[in-house]
Amino acid sequence: MEIEILKELQKIEQLLLIGCKNVLTPDDVSLMYGLSKDYLYHLTSDRMIPFHKPNGKKIFFHKDEVEAWLLKNPQDTDAEIRQRAAMFDLKKYGSMR
């Protein structure tokens, strides 16, 4: 039980330290956002996520770019979809009724 608590405390400490950084390693991104390192490397090799290679070997991520990438494809709520459909109906059929 004590070992599990120590591991959780270490994880919390890591997250607090990472939260202060703007330039992140793949390990940081993986821990902070719950993405596996394999998935991150897949995304970088397919050039789907912004990353930086200052010396041509190690890769780094800018925190703001990762967060922008994570949030770039928002999904509408049911209420937003219904509102848009109502507006479409008003524009298309409003003058006919």
Rank of each mutant, 00 (worst) to 15 (best):
residue 16 L to Q: 14
residue 84 R to I: 06
residue 15 L to G: 04
residue 94 G to M: 03
residue 26 P to V: 09
residue 72 K to Y: 06
residue 32 M to N: 13
residue 44 T to W: 02
residue 61 F to W: 03
residue 44 T to P: 06
residue 93 Y to L: 07
residue 73 N to S: 10
residue 21 K to C: 04
residue 20 C to T: 15
residue 92 K to E: 11
residue 75 Q to H: 11
residue 12 I to W: 12
residue 74 P to N: 02
residue 96 M to P: 00
residue 13 E to V: 12
residue 11 K to D: 07
residue 84 R to F: 01
residue 22 N to L: 10
residue 68 A to T: 00
residue 41 Y to L: 09
residue 5 I to Q: 13
residue 49 I to H: 08
residue 17 L to G: 13
residue 9 L to R: 15
residue 87 M to D: 06
residue 34 G to Q: 02
residue 79 A to L: 05
residue 42 H to R: 13
residue 77 T to P: 02
residue 19 G to S: 15
residue 82 R to T: 08
residue 44 T to G: 02
residue 44 T to K: 05
residue 34 G to D: 01
residue 67 E to W: 02
residue 62 H to T: 00
residue 64 D to N: 11
residue 13 E to N: 14
residue 13 E to S: 12
residue 37 K to G: 07
residue 6 L to N: 11
residue 40 L to H: 03
residue 48 M to C: 11
residue 25 T to W: 03
residue 53 K to N: 06
residue 69 W to S: 07
residue 47 R to C: 10
residue 51 F to M: 01
residue 57 K to E: 08
residue 47 R to L: 14
residue 64 D to S: 15
residue 20 C to Y: 15
residue 43 L to C: 03
residue 60 F to K: 07
residue 61 F to H: 01
residue 25 T to A: 02
residue 92 K to P: 00
residue 5 I to N: 14
residue 50 P to T: 07
residue 34 G to W: 08
residue 61 F to K: 00
residue 15 L to V: 01
residue 34 G to V: 03
residue 14 Q to V: 05
residue 10 Q to F: 12
residue 89 D to P: 07
residue 60 F to S: 04
residue 79 A to M: 02
residue 53 K to Q: 09
residue 39 Y to H: 14
residue 63 K to I: 04
residue 92 K to M: 13
residue 77 T to D: 07
residue 58 K to M: 09
residue 95 S to L: 03
residue 21 K to M: 06
residue 9 L to F: 10
residue 25 T to R: 05
residue 41 Y to Q: 06
residue 7 K to P: 02
residue 81 I to R: 02
residue 10 Q to R: 13
residue 70 L to Y: 01
residue 40 L to V: 04
residue 65 E to V: 01
residue 78 D to P: 00
residue 73 N to L: 00
residue 52 H to V: 10
residue 91 K to C: 10
residue 93 Y to F: 14
residue 75 Q to N: 02
residue 42 H to W: 12
residue 87 M to Q: 08
residue 43 L to T: 04
residue 97 R to Y: 11
residue 66 V to W: 06
residue 86 A to C: 09
residue 49 I to R: 08
residue 47 R to T: 12
residue 60 F to M: 08
residue 78 D to I: 00
residue 82 R to V: 01
residue 13 E to T: 12
residue 46 D to W: 10
residue 95 S to Y: 13
residue 51 F to L: 02
residue 55 N to C: 11
residue 46 D to R: 15
residue 46 D to S: 15
residue 97 R to P: 04
residue 54 P to N: 06
residue 61 F to A: 08
